[in-house]
Design a protein around this nucleic acid. Structure first.
Length: 279
DNA sequence: AAAGACACCTGTCCGC
DNA sequence: TGCGGACAGGTGTCTT
């Protein structure tokens, strides 16, 4: 489900309900997600949410609490939504449904509920700096930051034999560019997804860089993309799907040149593109 | 180091 | 209606 804009939309959605709030109870109905939810997650009970951050598609809920020796301690819940996960704000007393695996209940009567039918998501708990966690430490730069710039992107691409689409979807190169936004960015940049990363000119990368930033920023503004069941934390759909040029439009006319949008597989993922507009 | 295949799991849709 | 198969927004891990 979620790419970076959906995760950011979720972050902004839950933030006002939980920042500085105290967790009163943690409920784990199904611990078997991508990795088992660790039992230590119950250390959250009694903790205050100090911040709600995001790194790539990982949500970071930093907490402070008193440990058994009554010493102030910090730990962070790391939450990933996988392909089908969502977090929403519900009121205490609302019954969980089939795939509602995890609840964080707050003193203010609000509940943050994780629903994830496919269970590719994760809820982890770390006392270290979360950015040094195994899953986060080797991630590439944030796409909307100044660290994701032309010199960096071009240098990284040299010597790479993968397609440019797979290259920009590699989280060690840049985080947050999933299948939808990879297709859309390449379309807007006029670049064929089949082009090889290592043989693409700096001029093309300049355009691509701008389009990745533009597409992601706009998708965040629109509240994410709703394909099937994505809902924001407050239960509203995202609106970016109304602006998709190629994703999910195989066989339909290109909105620019009217030639049919093509679909094929790259590294097990569907790619959508216009062979006229993208070279 | 880089690239490709595969794994995890459920729901939905399409063709017969 | 039912059934089989393909497909879906992600990404760590294992093998080459």
């Amino acid at each position: 489900m979620p790419e970076l804009p959906e995760v950011e939309t979720t972050r902004r959605g839950i933030l006002p309900y939980i920042e500085q709030q105290r967790v009163t109870k943690i409920i784990v109905r199904q611990p078997k997600l991508r990795w088992a939810i660790p039992p230590e997650i119950h250390e959250m009970e009694g903790a205050f949410i100090k911040s709600v951050k995001r790194r790539g598609k990982y949500l970071l809920l930093e907490t402070t609490f008193l440990n058994k020796q009554s010493k102030s301690q910090t730990a962070t819940a790391i939450i990933h939504l996988g392909m089908s996960g969502s977090l929403r704000v519900v009121d205490l007393g609302e019954s969980p449904e089939k795939h509602d695996h995890f609840d964080m209940i707050f003193e203010n009567g609000k509940v943050i509920r994780l629903r994830d039918p496919r269970r590719f998501g994760a809820v982890l708990w770390t006392r270290k700096n979360p950015l040094k966690h195994k899953l986060l430490r080797s991630l590439g730069p944030e796409p909307l930051s100044a660290d994701f710039n032309l010199d960096y992107l071009y240098q990284q691409s040299r010597g790479r034999s993968v397609s440019i689409k797979q290259f920009i979807m590699n989280a060690h190169i840049v985080v947050g560019v999933g299948n939808i936004y990879a297709c859309e960015s390449l379309f807007k940049a006029g670049i064929s997804p089949k082009r090889l990363a290592g043989k693409t000119s700096k001029t093309r990368y300049k355009k691509l860089l701008l389009m990745i930033k533009e597409v992601l920023a706009e998708a965040i503004e629109q509240g994410g993309t709703t394909l099937r069941d994505f809902v924001q934390a407050e239960g509203n759909p995202g609106y970016f799907q109304q602006k998709l040029f190629v994703y999910g439009r195989a066989g339909q006319a290109c909105l620019i040149c009217e030639s049919p949008i093509k679909q094929f597989k790259q590294g097990q993922r569907s790619t959508f593109y216009c062979s006229q507009c993208q070279r």
